[in-house]
C-alpha cells in the first residue's frame, strides 16, 4: 500500500502520529511532500516501511528510526537519524551538523557533505558520506563505522572509543587520542561492503583508517580501582 502526505495541508505531528500507529511488521510506501525544512519529520518510526521525503527537511529527520527505510530527496538540517536504532536513512543532498549523532544501529547514507560533528557519540550506527565532513566529527564515538569519501575537518575522532573512521580524502587534523592505523584486509572488506550498501563507488584501498590510540580511556576490569578526581 502507498499513502501520500502533503505538508502544505497537514502537520508533522499528524504524519508522525499516523506512522507511530503502524504495526511493527507493517509494510508500505509513504510519500511526504513539501517538507520545506520542517523539523522532526518521520521521527520515532518502528516499522519496515519505506518513507520518501520529497524536498529539503529540517532538524532531527528520521530521528530514533527503527526498521524504516527513509529517503530524503533534498538536504537535511541538524541531527538527521540521531539515535537511530536500525533501518536505513538516505539523504540525497547535504546534511547539517550532528548527522547520525548517538546512533545505535542501522545505516545512514549522505550523498553530499555532512557538516560538523557528524557521527558524534555514535554507538553502533554505520555512516557513509559521499562528500566531506566538518570539524569535530565522530567525537567520543563508541562503536560503528564512519566512511567518508571526501575530506574530514579538524579534530577528527577526538576522544574516540571503539568506532572506526575511514577517510578517502584529506584529514585536516586528528582530535586527541585519534590516530591513523594501517588498513587491513578486513578493513578493505568492510569498506567495500558499506560502499555497496550505500550505492557509492570508490576503491577501498584509497581510504585511511583512523581509530582510538586508547590512551584516554581505560576499560580493564583487572586493574585496581582508581579514584576519580
Amino acid at each position: 500500500m502507498s499513502e501520500t502526505f502533503d505538508l502544505k495541508t497537514t502537520t508533522v505531528r499528524a504524519i508522525n502520529e499516523h506512522l507511530h500507529g503502524l504495526a511493527p511488521d507493517a509494510t508500505g510506501v509513504y510519500e511526504i511532500l513539501n517538507p520545506n525544512g520542517s523539523h522532526n519529520i518521520a521521527v520515532g518510526v518502528d516499522a519496515p516501511v519505506e518513507i520518501n521525503i520529497r524536498g529539503h527537511a529540517g532538524y532531527f529527520t528520521a530521528g530514533m528510526n527503527k526498521q524504516a527505510r527513509v529517503t530524503v530527496y533534498g538536504n537535511v538540517g541538524w541531527s538527521v537519524a540521531e539515535n537511530m536504532m536500525s533501518g536505513r536513512v538516505h539523504v540525497k543532498g547535504f546534511a547539517s551538523q550532528c548527522a547520525g549523532a548517538s546512533g545505535h544501529g542501522g545505516l545512514l547514507v549522505i550523498d553530499g557533505d555532512a557538516s560538523s560533528r557528524c557521527g558524534i557519540s555514535m554507538k553502533g550506527i554505520d555512516i557513509v558520506v559521499g562528500g566531506s565532513i566538518g570539524h569535530m566529527s565522530a567525537f567520543m564515538a563508541q562503536a560503528g563505522r564512519l566512511v567518508v569519501l571526501g575530506d574530514a575537518g579538524k579534530g577528527l575522532g577526538d576522544s574516540l572509543y571503539e568506532a572506526v573512521i575511514y577517510v578517502r580524502g584529506k584529514i585536516h587534523g586528528l582530535g586527541a587520542d585519534a590516530r591513523v592505523e594501517d588498513l587491513s584486509e578486513e578493513d578493505r572488506t568492510q569498506i567495500g561492503e558499506l560502499l555497496e550498501q550505500a550505492g557509492l563507488s570508490a576503491r577501498p584501498a584509497e581510504f585511511t583508517r583512523v581509530a582510538s590510540a586508547r590512551t584516554l580511556y581505560h576499560w580493564n576490569p583487572t586493574s585496581p580501582q582508581v579514584s576519580v578526581l
Binding site: 520545506n36 525544512g37 523539523h39 524536498g55 529539503h56 529540517g58 532538524y59 538536504n75 538540517g77 547535504f94
Partner: peptide
Amino acid sequence: SEFRTLAHLPRIHEANLFE
C-alpha cells in the same frame, strides 16, 4: 538560521544552498 525560513522564496529549489 534554518532552511524553512527560506522555503517560500522564488525559485528556491534552484538555488545554490550551502552552510
